[in-house]
Every structure is written in C-alpha cells, then in structure tokens.
C-alpha cells in the first residue's frame, strides 16, 4: 500500500511538472537531428509510398500502443499473474455447483 501511494504521488508530481512547463514539447528527433540536417543543408525524404497525415497519425499511434499494450498485459499475466481467472473460478464453482444441484 505504501509503495502504491509513493508511485501515485510521483505520478501526480510528474504530471504536475509537465503541465507546469510551458513549451512546444518538440522531440530531440526534431530539434537535434533536424537542426543538424538543416545546418548541413540536407532534408528528410520520403521513400515509402504512404504518409501519415492529420489524424491518421493519431489513429496509428493509438492502435499501435493499444496492440502493444494488450500484448504486454497478456504476456505479463501469463508470466506473473496470480491467477485471477483461477480465483474467479474458485469463487464461481461452488455457486455453479449449487445451481446444478437438484
């Protein structure tokens, strides 16, 4: 419980600090890499025939994050889960047995 409270407090502090920082939140891929490229007079190019524009980029990132998140959760539960399904079955089984009993 104490550990969870510390993690929650750190999360709140982090979010507060982020919201309290006034910035455009540019990534280092843009600022550092883009800055060097601009200085050298080189520009990014497009090799792939498709490009993520507008909200399509948001959709792709949400979908990718969700799929990866589900995969992480699934495998995490397979490896470290304390068997919530088994616990549910333990709770449910007597009730099912009761219902089937004449």
């Amino acid at each position: 419980m104490r550990r969870k409270l510390i993690i929650a407090a750190l999360a709140v502090l982090f979010i507060g600090a982020v919201l309290g920082t006034s910035s455009e939140w540019l990534g280092t891929d843009d600022t550092v890499v883009g800055g060097l490229a601009q200085k050298a007079g080189v520009h990014e190019s497009q090799l792939l025939p498709w490009e993520l524009t507008g909200d399509l980029q948001l959709f792709v990132f949400c979908a990718g994050g969700a799929i990866a998140g589900f995969a992480v959760g699934y495998y995490w539960r397979t490896l470290f889960g304390e068997g919530p399904r088994e616990r549910v079955e333990e709770v449910d089984e007597p009730a099912i047995a009761d219902r089937k009993a004449p």
């Binding site: 920082t21 540019l26 990534g27 280092t28 990718g64 990866a68």
Partner: peptide, 28 residues
C-alpha cells in the same frame, strides 16, 4: 511469453515520446 513480453515492450517504449519537465522536450 518472456520473448513476447520483451518484444512488445521494446516496441512501445522506444516509440513512446516521454516529456522531460523543466526542459520542455521529449525523447525516447
């Protein structure tokens, strides 16, 4: 399962832009 977990983890973590408060920048 551990290989699957790590594969999904590396994908999502290395794509996630994490903000650095105070600096106002993000990186992976």
């Amino acid at each position: 399962p551990l290989v699957g977990l790590m594969g999904a983890f590396v994908f999502v973590v290395s794509l996630m832009p994490v903000p650095v408060p105070g600096l106002g920048t993000v990186s992976h």
